[in-house]
């Protein structure tokens, strides 16, 4: 032990650099093996090989450039990003980096010099740092993927349909959170402008529950629509939701609410000047009054 510790750090480091150069083919081949098996056939070998080749060169380069790791970090961040998008786990991603330690260790063992062993400790530390950095970039990239997906989901889940000339409806289905409600409502208001519709029905039959924030957003939308010159009707309020709204003390004021989408449609048709008469049971005759 005493012998190893008396080796100056520089000598160990130099020895590792030499080993990385002398045994490049061997170390690289082993590294590719480890990284390849960790990636479980999800990546084709030649693209992995070229990726690792770049990393290997950047690593050796950085040792030469007095420890400037910025190029290497850039490559690792890129690797983490692509892996996060391809659905690899953080472990699978990190093993790519940590695998280099094991790949080099075989050469260190064969070399068996105290310098190489001492240097390997230093090398381990460098790789550990790089590994942590990789995991961190992986997490950031994942977070970004999740954010993007949430955004796409919002786009998908917000249909605004035309019910009649001048009447549009938004059937809301599923749990409403504040962000989604906001997006739906913005879209609704924009469609009122684009189609010149003066009436809108917000149908929440498919919404199991609302919280204060969501109820507030619904309320604000109705007020905003009014400021723009359009009227909104809210339909399909379940008893539990009505209960929530009353218990929370949210003032719905003079906002029109209807039990079903059909009632809301009838209300808005009447409000926009359409008259209908019921004749012979189920048939409904509709007459539009021109003013």
């Amino acid at each position: 032990m005493g012998v190893i510790l008396s080796i100056p750090a520089d000598a160990g480091r130099r020895r590792i650099e030499e080993l990385l150069q002398e045994n490049e083919d061997r170390v690289f081949k082993r590294w590719l093996e480890i990284a390849g098996s960790a990636s479980g056939g999800q990546v084709d070998r030649s693209s992995l090989a070229s990726q690792l080749r770049e990393l290997y060169q950047a690593l050796r380069q950085s040792f030469g450039d007095s420890g400037d790791l910025s190029d290497l970090r850039g490559l690792l961040a890129e690797l983490s990003r692509t892996r996060a998008r391809q659905g690899f786990t953080s472990t699978e991603t990190a093993i790519v980096v940590f695998g280099l330690k094991e790949a080099l260790y075989e050469s260190v063992e064969d070399d068996a010099s105290p310098e190489a062993l001492r240097g390997f400790i230093w090398f381990s530390r460098v790789i550990d740092d790089l590994g942590l950095f990789t995991v961190e970039s992986y997490a950031t990239a994942r977070e970004k993927v999740i954010l993007d997906q949430a955004e796409q989901l919002l786009e998908l889940s917000t249909p605004v349909v035309k019910l009649w000339d001048g009447i549009v409806a938004v059937p809301l289905v599923g749990t409403l959170d504040s962000a989604r409600t906001q997006v739906v409502m913005e879209k609704l208001l924009q469609i009122l402008v684009d189609t010149g519709s003066e009436h809108a029905v917000i149908d929440i039959t498919g919404v199991p529950a609302v919280d204060t924030q969501v109820a507030q957003h619904l309320l604000k939308t109705v007020v905003a629509a009014r400021l723009m010159g359009a009227e909104c009707v809210i339909s399909g309020i379940r008893p539990q939701i009505a209960h929530t709204i009353v218990t929370l003390g949210i003032e719905f004021g003079d906002i029109v609410t209807k039990a079903t989408l059909a009632d809301a449609l009838a209300h808005t048709l009447r409000a926009s000047g359409v008259e209908f008469t019921k004749s012979r049971g189920s048939r409904i005759a509709v007459r539009t009054v021109e003013d």
Binding site: M185, E186, L189, Q190, L192, V193, G196, S197, E198, K220, T221, V223, A224, A225, R226, L227, M228, G229, A230
Partner: peptide
């Protein structure tokens, strides 16, 4: 007439209700 959705949402948040002002979607409807 013609208040943009973003403007309307912002006014509501600001707490301004424009009481007593009539509104319409566009000039024609105005």
């Amino acid at each position: 007439v013609g208040m943009r959705p973003a403007v309307a949402i912002t006014l509501v948040e600001l707490g301004l209700s424009l009481g007593g002002v009539r509104t319409a979607l566009n000039l024609e409807k105005g």
